[in-house]
């Protein structure tokens, strides 16, 4: 069985082709880069529509698969930006109906965890999923992926990106902050906000920008921003590990590229005698294979949808999804 998965929740228009043996035959994507400022949902959607055909052709060529060999089409129906989601949905429906292939709408966050499990061999991890659009601590419990902690306002990737933009660093901001942070020597106190299991980054971001405007050293501020944000992330992940007593920790999402965050999580996992996993970056960032693989898991466990079940949902929570394959 071969599944073609379409990811288009935010910046990335990605197509993945995956077999039911878990072989990733193609992982092709095109990323929308705003000329200035943050992501504009309508422009992202226009980008996705413009590159859809070409990306599909590239993916099929890479996988050496003809479209009539594809047995299933899946797409990310949420959470994400409405216009971007609808573009991916339209592409998926078009392929599905034109070539008469079954169609499945899958959840973006579930897919991040599932491709991580496939890629790393982790069986039952506490997952820290951190990107420009999401910040969640997720673990499987009684038939669903439950959220053990999440941001109450902005995602941590957004916090780093906006800070970078406000202090004049080029985009993408996260890697720039990481680079400068390595030269930071002094910790400047910034608001550390953990509310039980949940996090908040908007006050941290604002205060870091304010301290920069007040003349704070940029290297020190980048260091302090990372240390503060990541300590909070690791603390909440640690709470979930302690609570669930799971023996695996996984990091995924675009912010997983950050070496300091990896180091901190690895230390924490070690203290709980848990193994630590990070998928390759191509599978941490938004990607098509994760959508294809989750489509296969769902389809093989009897999930079927009619066309009207495949509407997009910008706020589709990970804990609303039944997981019959676990």
């Amino acid at each position: 069985m071969i599944c073609l998965g379409i990811e288009s929740t935010a910046h990335t228009f990605g197509i993945g082709i995956v077999s039911d043996k878990g072989h990733i035959l193609a992982n092709v994507s095109s990323i929308y880069v705003p000329e200035r400022g943050g992501i504009h949902p309508r422009e992202a959607a226009q980008h996705h529509a413009a590159v859809a055909k070409k990306t599909l052709e590239r993916a099929l060529a890479k996988a050496k698969v003809r479209i009539n060999e594809v047995n299933l089409v899946s797409f990310a129906a949420g959470p994400g930006l409405g216009p971007a989601l609808r573009t991916g949905a339209t592409a998926a429906r078009a392929i599905s109906s034109f070539f008469n292939i079954p169609l499945l709408a899958v959840n973006h966050c579930v897919s991040h965890v599932e491709i991580g499990r496939l890629a790393t061999g982790a069986k039952d991890p506490v997952t820290l999923y951190v990107s420009g659009g999401n910040t969640q601590v997720i673990a499987f419990e009684a038939g669903r992926y439950r959220v053990f902690g999440e941001t109450l306002d902005i995602p941590v990737g957004n916090c780093l990106d906006v800070f970078a933009r406000e202090v004049g660093l080029p985009s993408p901001g996260g890697p720039q902050v990481e680079r400068l942070a390595r030269k930071g020597k002094h910790y400047i106190a910034l608001p550390y906000v953990v509310k039980g299991m949940d996090l908040s980054f908007s006050g941290l971001m604002t205060e870091a920008v304010r301290k920069h405007r007040a003349g704070g050293d940029l290297y020190d501020l980048c260091h302090s921003l990372q240390e503060t944000a990541f300590a909070a992330l690791v603390e909440v992940t640690e709470r979930a590990v302690a609570h669930t007593e799971k023996k695996e920790v996984m990091l995924t999402g675009g912010v997983a590229a950050n070496k300091r965050l990896r180091e901190m999580l690895r230390l924490m996992a070690g203290e709980h005698e848990a193994r630590f996993f990070v998928p390759s970056m191509g599978l941490c960032q938004d990607n098509g294979p994760m959508i294809a693989w989750t489509g296969i898991l769902a389809y093989k466990h009897g999930v079927r949808q009619r066309l009207e079940d495949t509407v997009v949902n910008q706020r589709w929570r990970v804990d609303e999804v039944n997981i019959p394959w676990r």
């Binding site: 943050g38 992501i39 949902p41 959470p79 409405g82 910040t135 999440e150 109450l152 706020r315 929570r317």
Partner: peptide, 17 residues
Amino acid sequence: EIEHRGRYVAKEDRTWR
């Protein structure tokens, strides 16, 4: 209100971006 915040509020609805 808090439940409806965070990621699950469309970015278009946010006050800053």
